[in-house]
Design a protein around this nucleic acid. Structure first.
Lengths: 222, 222
DNA sequence: CGGCGTAGTTAACGCTGTTAGCTTAACGCC
DNA sequence: GGCGTTAAGCTAACAGCGTTAACTACGCCG
């Protein structure tokens, strides 16, 4: 016995090339442009050879997504780094970086947060450690510093995430400018500008505040 | 001459059956389960016959989406009807109906607001008249009634939409409960509950308010 | 050298959207 | 009634997809 030994280094190298090709194709033409045969052509293999490295197309895509999530996490971390912990600016910077990443790497974002797939399990590992944990930490610090409402940091972080994610997904699915047709004032069509326009509403709320000290001084009026 | 006349009534009836079959298949198995041959089988035609009624698969899907958007608009209108115009409850009811529709008709919602497609133009007509216009109206009334911050109603409506949409798309793409792993408190995993948990944050903002009357009385403390 | 396992190949299956070409049926007119 | 015209359907086919089965070339070890 003792047949031919597998070469782990070479296998990893080929695997890396496959993932890289798949990533490029995905970034170029989106999910619809990705096929096993095309990936195989790029790395100079036949389509069936890919099945030696990945169980199936789903496995390959999953791998690309994992890498993209890691890159996403790094992107967010870089954006947060310049801002001091406990500051609202740090939270805002994370939100804006979220939008910028989605704008810059739209094809990735589309795949990362597609609502098409029936099994959201594939996404459950990476975003938490990468992105959401970072946001939750920043939010927790800001709450501890008295800059944000003293609520559950997880809930607060999730809320901030929802706003940024909502802005981006709506911007990708619909044309915002069309929502405002026939209006006098114009809405920002750029997602980042829109997100920034939301800042006052996020900070101070959508309802007219009823400050206690003022409320018992006179009738509620704004 | 004088050849055979086309029968518009029958053509419309067949077209209706095709759309209905496509809608059902979409609701059952999502976008991935929809194929021309399957639709054709359901209505007792061959796949190629569908091309007499729709330009291609995209056209058929677009038609189904249009219908779904109309249904969506009606769903929202029904939810808003019981609440008086100008009330915050009406706005909140619209938001909750948004979540409920997405939960109840998930397959529709996935197709309606997919971020996969590269052309968001297809979505641009219906949602405005159906859903967004309604929300914008409710928000405008609430602002006029002094219940909401006096900002551009379009911007305010878009903000509310982003929150609801963010909640739903995140819930569909990731598992919320996994975001909170290893935490002491638990986050609501149900989208509707989560949206309701966000209500205080939406109302009063995420930042600690600094009421003027209180701020100059003592140091800022919460 | 003989055997064995790795890493690749080609051929094929069943599916997809879509087109071309053919057939059937209904209608009005002579 | 027969005929031309046309709507509406059909089958066959093409190119592409993910995936499996069967086969081949290569290198190691005993």
């Amino acid at each position: 016995m003792s047949p031919r030994q597998p070469d782990p280094d070479r296998a990893l190298e080929v695997e890396r090339q496959i993932v890289e090709a798949a990533r490029d194709i995905l970034a170029e033409g989106g999910m619809g442009g990705l096929s096993m045969r095309l990936v195989a052509d790029r790395v100079g293999l036949s389509a069936t050879a890919l099945y030696n490295y990945f169980e199936n197309k789903d496995g390959l895509v999953r791998r690309v997504i994992e890498d993209a999530f890691r890159q996403f996490g790094g992107y967010l971390a870089d954006a947060a780094a310049p801002h001091p912990r406990g500051s609202l600016d740090r939270v805002q910077a994370l939100g804006e970086a979220y939008i910028r990443f989605a704008t810059e790497y739209t094809a990735y974002f589309r795949v990362l947060f597609s609502i098409q797939q029936d099994d959201p399990r594939t996404l459950e590992d990476i975003p938490d450690e990468g992105g959401f944990g970072l946001l939750q930490e920043a939010v927790g610090d800001a709450i501890a510093a008295g800059k944000m409402q003293p609520v559950d940091p997880g809930l607060m972080a999730l809320y901030c995430w929802c706003v940024a994610h909502g802005v981006m997904t709506i911007a990708l699915a619909c044309r915002i400018d069309h929502c405002a047709e026939g209006r006098e004032t114009t809405l920002p069509t750029d997602p980042l500008e829109l997100f920034r326009a939301f800042r006052p509403l996020m900070r101070d709320g959508i309802a007219v505040p009823v400050p206690i000290a003022v409320a018992d001084r006179e009738g509620v009026e704004v």
